[in-house]
Design a protein around this nucleic acid. Structure first.
Length: 433
DNA sequence: CTTTGTTTATCAGGAG
DNA sequence: CTCCTGATAAACAAAG
C-alpha cells in the first residue's frame, strides 16, 4: 500500500539529478577531511563513511553507484565527496587542530551554493576558483545534508542568542544553511513540526505578553545534554527521555490507564515510540513543564506547591503583572526565567562532564566540550572565528555565511544565491540539477 | 484563511 | 529476530 510510495521520495530525485550532473572525478578536494582522524568518530555507519562512500562513485560512467534503497543521507554522502563532511559532527569548531574541519561541511556546502549561479561571478569568486582548480568539481547543494531533523533543530536553537526560536525561525535557519531545504518545504517542515512535538528534548516555551505573535518558542530541554556529542548527527545513541516527566506522569496516571499502557482503545499494541509518547502527554500539562524547568524532583512537588512557587517567583520578578496574568502567561514567564537559569547551569555541568549520562561515554581524551564533532561548537563566537578563518582562505564566505543568522536569527538574509537561482526550485518540487 | 502544534501510522535501517 | 530511532504522511485542532 503505502510502502512503495514512501520510499524516501527524495532519493529518486537526487538519483536522477546526480546522474545528470557534471562528471565527477577522484580529484575532489579533501583538504578538510584530512584534519580529523576518521577513527576518532564514534558514529553509526549511517553517517561518517565518507571514505568508503567516495569509492562507490562510478567514475567511468559518470554515474553514481547507488543502492536504490539507500537512505537520502547516505546518498548525500555518496554524493558529496568533496564536501568534507567530516563536519558531519562539527559544523563549527574552535580548536586549532580542527580548524579546517570546522564549518567545513556547511561552508563547503555553501561554496557549492555559490557555484550554482546567482552569486559572485568575478574572477576571484569561489565559483571561478573552484572551476579553475577542479574542472569537474560539482556542487551538491541539492543533496540532503547528513543531519537528522533533530540535529538541525538543535543546531538552530543552540545557534540562537536566546537559545530558543520560533518554528518559523527554525525553518529559516535550516533553509539559510542548507539550500536543499528550500525545496519540498511542506514535506520537511511537517517533519520538523513532528520532531518538535514528538521529542522530549524540545521544550515549548510560551510567549510572554510583550512578545505577541503566533506560536511558541522552542528550546532545548536543559537535561537533554549532548545528544550529538558522539559526532553522529543522524542518529542519537539514545533518545532523550525526560525522566521527571515520566515520573510525574506515573504519579498522575490512573490505574485504568496503567492497564492500558502501550495499548490503544482497541487493545492493539501501539506501534513504536511508546516511551516517548508517554512524555508527550506529559508536556501538555503546564506543571510538568514547570517542574522540569525548576529542576525540582516532581515527587517532591504537587501542583499546588508548584503554583505557589510560580506565584512567588512572579512576585519577585514582575510584581505589577501577576494579578492580571493568565495561567499561561505565568507559566511562560516562569519557563523563560527558569529555562535560562537551567541552561546556564546546564552549560556549566556540560563543561564539567556531569550531564553525559544519557549517552554512551566518550572515548578517553574527549570531553563533551572539546569533542571535534560537538554540536555545542555552534556557538556564535566560534562561528565568527571559523567563518573568518574560512574567509581568509579565500572562499568568499561573506556572502554565503550563515553568520547573519547567528547574530540576528530573525533577520531575513539577503541570500541572493537562493533567490536568484532557479536551480533550487522546480514546479514539481524536485531538483533539476 | 494560514500557521502552528499534536497525534497516529507506517516504513527504513541500525543495534544488539 | 526484536527493538529502537528517524523520516514521512496525514488527519486534526487551535491560534492568529
Amino acid at each position: 500500500m503505502l510502502a512503495t510510495q514512501k520510499l524516501y521520495p527524495d532519493v529518486s530525485s537526487m538519483s536522477t539529478s546526480a546522474n545528470a550532473m557534471t562528471p565527477m572525478t577522484s580529484t575532489y578536494s579533501m583538504n578538510s577531511m584530512s584534519c580529523v582522524s576518521m577513527t576518532s568518530m564514534n558514529c553509526s555507519p549511517q553517517a561518517p563513511m565518507f571514505g568508503s562512500s567516495m569509492l562507490s562513485t562510478d567514475m567511468t560512467n559518470n554515474n553514481m553507484v547507488m543502492n536504490s534503497r539507500i537512505h537520502p543521507r547516505q546518498q548525500f554522502l555518496n554524493d558529496s565527496p568533496q564536501l568534507g563532511y567530516t563536519a558531519i559532527g562539527s559544523p563549527i569548531s574552535q580548536t586549532s587542530s580542527c580548524m579546517a574541519t570546522s564549518m567545513s561541511g556547511i561552508s563547503n556546502y555553501q561554496i557549492g551554493r555559490s557555484e550554482l549561479g546567482g552569486g559572485d561571478a568575478s574572477p576571484n569568486s569561489a565559483l571561478q576558483r573552484v572551476r579553475n582548480e577542479k574542472p569537474y568539481r560539482r556542487s551538491y547543494t541539492h543533496a540532503k545534508p547528513p543531519y537528522s531533523y533533530i540535529s538541525l533543530i538543535t543546531m538552530a536553537i543552540q545557534n540562537s542568542p536566546q537559545k530558543m526560536l520560533t518554528l518559523s525561525e527554525i525553518y529559516q535557519f535550516i533553509m539559510d544553511l542548507f539550500p536543499f531545504y528550500r525545496q519540498n518545504q511542506q514535506r520537511w517542515q511537517n517533519s520538523i513540526r513532528h520532531s518538535l512535538s514528538f521529542n522530549d528534548c524540545f521544550v515549548k516555551v510560551p510567549r510572554t505578553p510583550d512578545k505577541p505573535g503566533k506560536g511558541s518558542f522552542w528550546s532545548l530541554h536543559p537535561d537533554s545534554g549532548n545528544m550529538f556529542e558522539n559526532g553522529c548527527y543522524l542518529r542519537r545513541q539514545k533518545r532523550f527521555k525526560d525522566e521527571k516527566k515520566e515520573i510525574l506522569r506515573q504519579q498522575h496516571k490512573s490505574p485504568s490507564h496503567h492497564s492500558m499502557d502501550n495499548s490503544n482503545s482497541s487493545g492493539k499494541k501501539t506501534p513504536l515510540h511508546n516511551s516517548e509518547d508517554k512524555n508527550h502527554q506529559l508536556e501538555k500539562t503546564p506543571d510538568n513543564n514547570l517542574s522540569t524547568m525548576m529542576n525540582i524532583h516532581p515527587s517532591k512537588l504537587d501542583v499546588d506547591q508548584m503554583n505557589l512557587l510560580n506565584a512567588n517567583d512572579l512576585n519577585m520578578h514582575q510584581p505589577h503583572h501577576h494579578h492580571n496574568m493568565s495561567n499561561e502567561e505565568l507559566t511562560a514567564m516562569i519557563n523563560r526565567n527558569n529555562h535560562l537559569a537551567s541552561l546556564s547551569e546546564h552549560q556549566a555541568m556540560l563543561h564539567h562532564g556531569t550531564i553525559n549520562h544519557h549517552l554512551k561515554q566518550e572515548p578517553t581524551g574527549y570531553t563533551p566540550s572539546n569533542h571535534p564533532f560537538s554540536i555545542n561548537r555552534l556557538l556564535p563566537t566560534e562561528s565568527k572565528t571559523d567563518i573568518k578563518m574560512y574567509a581568509d582562505m579565500g572562499y568568499g564566505y561573506n556572502t554565503l555565511s550563515p553568520l547573519p543568522n547567528t547574530i540576528h536569527p530573525h533577520a531575513s538574509l539577503s541570500n541572493d544565491y537562493y533567490n536568484s537561482s532557479s536551480l533550487y526550485h522546480t514546479s514539481t518540487g524536485t531538483t533539476t540539477l
